[in-house]
């Protein structure tokens, strides 16, 4: 879904025979910025793939040795790293599945159906959109504790299902869909649930893809709430576990680097595979970053 390139001429676009210094300068700025942007992650990976036993060398490692020693110590020496990864996977997957199904349902109801209270309910949802979790952390903790979910993955997943952003995204998208198919199916006597499941949901694929990707990344990367909701080391999600590696392996930097790198790797691979959907999703307003 690339737009055709309109030339926004910051640099002269009909290059005269003389050398286009503007173009060269612009390219240089872009490349330098890209290097600065990618350097921290690159350096983390260079360190992770180079055997380091204690303190990293004073002359920084800039070219990795492509050895897996650190990772072997990480997976062999930490008790729970694999648990953390699994926990993060469960949390991100569960929250994503919820939002794909129920945000689409709610978005459909708000976009296409008329029912008493629709506008009031929608207004209430909308007005809380800007409220960050930081404001509600304390009651959230008390409620999660009362329903017995502190230190369980459920206690991380359930508050995650309450993020209303996807409802707006899906409502916006479904509003643009034509109503004829839906009405034809209704005339044919299809049940309302079948109309949703077999007609609406398939039509929503592009928006659902963006929503799913962003929800997954967001909850894989989530930190503050899991930090508060989870206590025992085996229950941690990956981010919480990695943040604690430094306390546990004070002197073995190889393990710390590889732990951080391995936590970042799945999302980077995910991004490279679904790049188009990511950038499209940002345009739909699906993420901050």
């Amino acid at each position: 879904m690339e737009r055709t390139a309109p030339s926004i001429p910051l640099t002269a676009h009909k290059a005269a025979p003389r050398i286009a210094w503007g173009k060269i300068g612009a390219m240089a700025v872009l490349i330098v910025t890209a290097v600065v942007a990618l350097f921290p992650m690159y350096w983390l990976f260079a360190n992770a793939f180079t055997p380091i036993l204690g303190t990293p060398p004073l002359t920084p490692i800039l070219v990795p040795a492509f050895k897996l020693d650190n990772f072997q110590r990480l997976l062999g020496g930490t008790k729970y790293y694999a648990n953390w990864m699994l926990n993060s996977l469960i949390v991100a997957f569960a929250v994503t599945a919820w939002h794909v199904v129920f945000d689409t349902m709610a978005g459909y109801a708000f976009a296409k159906r008329r029912f008493p209270g629709r506008n009031v309910l929608f207004w209430i949802l909308l007005s809380t959109l800007m409220i960050p979790i930081h404001v509600t952390l304390i009651p959230l903790y008390i409620i999660t504790r009362r329903i017995g979910l502190i230190d369980t993955l459920g206690g991380v997943i359930l508050p995650g299902t309450a993020v209303v952003f996807g409802i707006f995204l899906m409502r916006q998208y479904i509003q643009t869909l034509p109503s004829e198919l839906e009405e034809a199916a209704r005339v044919d006597g299809a049940s309302e649930f079948r109309i949703f499941w077999e007609i609406i949901l398939p039509l929503c694929k592009p928006a659902v893809a963006a929503l799913a990707i962003f929800t997954f990344v967001r909850f894989w990367n989530d930190f503050l709430w899991p930090l508060i909701a989870l206590n025992k080391a085996q229950n941690y999600t990956l981010t919480v576990g990695v943040a604690n590696l430094q306390g546990e392996f004070m002197t073995d930097w190889g393990v710390i680097f590889s732990g951080a790198a391995l936590a970042a790797l799945p999302m980077i691979a995910f991004f490279l595979a679904f790049q188009k959907y990511f950038l499209e999703g940002v345009r739909m307003g699906a993420i901050k970053g």
Binding site: M41, W43, L44
Partner: peptide, 21 residues
């Protein structure tokens, strides 16, 4: 894509890499 790549990494990991730097 190059500019976006670090944004898919968790703020926590980004923070850690800067702590190392």
């Amino acid at each position: 894509a190059a500019y976006y790549l670090p944004a898919v990494t968790s703020a926590l990991i980004i923070g850690l890499t800067w702590a190392y730097i």
